[in-house]
């Protein structure tokens, strides 16, 4: 039971994530306007765009923090946009946050163990009685959390309070926590925001290594060099609309994209 997801991987052959005609309004502002795209399994896809273009809103719509006014989101054949957030995690969707949202009242290891929540089942009674099944789950959670901390190089900090980590390590811990849920799709919300060059490089390496292992990743990112290095595909949004989609090279040469960015950032690549 534990650590196995009743999956329909074998029976579904469409894109892993399918976003159709997504629209949301905040008051009079149309923050996201009729955006559609999809993410294939095993692909690293980035959403980019100028500040205020609606990237993070799209992210929050996919992860369930906002509900769209219209449009549909599918993870394989499961419709996400009508689903409470915690159910999405059960389906294999996991995310990090632009403004790091760690559990500061817990240790690094415990943060990662919360990531195992959907992969374990022990509820109140087994916990109170500390049944053998519950204890086995705890052991497995701890091992799994530890493995993921190792993946991101935080194993040495396992017992420290999460809040005592420097900011760069906190970002990385969020990735480890998300990974601990064994996601099918990992959403990274500006994983390099607020990091220095060295730390950004480390995050890039982590993402690359995940990609090599076949992880499907959708990310929002400002750091263009990071995006262009690690992404297979890029979606460009501006004023809530999708203005381009394609490989990094394709979008860099897209006239609309270049004008949206006033040329500057992209030429640097």
């Amino acid at each position: 039971m534990a650590f196995a997801r009743g999956s329909d991987k074998q029976t579904f052959d469409g894109p892993l994530l399918n976003v159709r005609n997504l629209t949301i309004r905040f008051g009079g502002l149309i923050a996201v306007n009729d955006v559609s795209f999809s993410v294939r399994s095993g692909c690293v896809k980035a959403i980019i765009g100028p500040n205020g273009a609606g990237k993070t809103t799209i992210f929050n719509l996919i992860s369930g923090i906002y509900k769209p006014a219209s449009g549909e989101i599918f993870l394989r054949n499961h419709r996400l946009d009508k689903m409470p957030m915690h159910m999405m995690a059960e389906l294999g969707l996991s995310r990090t946050f632009q403004n790091v949202q760690l559990f500061h009242n817990m240790s690094v290891l415990e943060n990662a163990m919360v990531g195992c929540h959907t992969r374990t089942r022990a509820d109140l009674l087994p916990s109170i009685l500390r049944t053998p099944g519950m204890r086995r789950e705890e052991r497995e959670s701890r091992e799994c959390a530890m493995e993921n901390l190792e993946k991101v190089g935080l194993a040495g900090f396992a017992d420290l309070p999460a809040g005592s980590l420097p900011f760069g390590k906190q970002r990385v811990l969020e990735i480890a926590r998300a990974l601990a849920s064994d996601p099918e799709l990992l959403l990274l919300d500006e994983p390099a925001a607020g990091l220095n060059t060295t730390e950004t490089g480390e995050v890039g390496e982590i993402i690359t290594s995940l990609k090599e292992k076949g992880m499907t990743i959708l990310l929002v990112e400002h750091d263009m060099s990071l995006v262009m290095n690690i992404s297979d595909e890029v979606v460009v949004v501006d004023y809530g609309k999708k203005i381009a989609e394609g490989t990094p090279t394709e979008v860099q040469n897209d006239a609309k994209v270049v004008s949206a960015y006033l040329g500057a950032d992209l030429e640097a690549v």
Partner: peptide, 14 residues
């Protein structure tokens, strides 16, 4: 404790 730390992040973790 997770939902005390951040309800959103806890929900995102399932």
């Amino acid at each position: 404790r997770a939902l005390h730390g951040s309800e959103t992040a806890a929900a995102a973790m399932g």
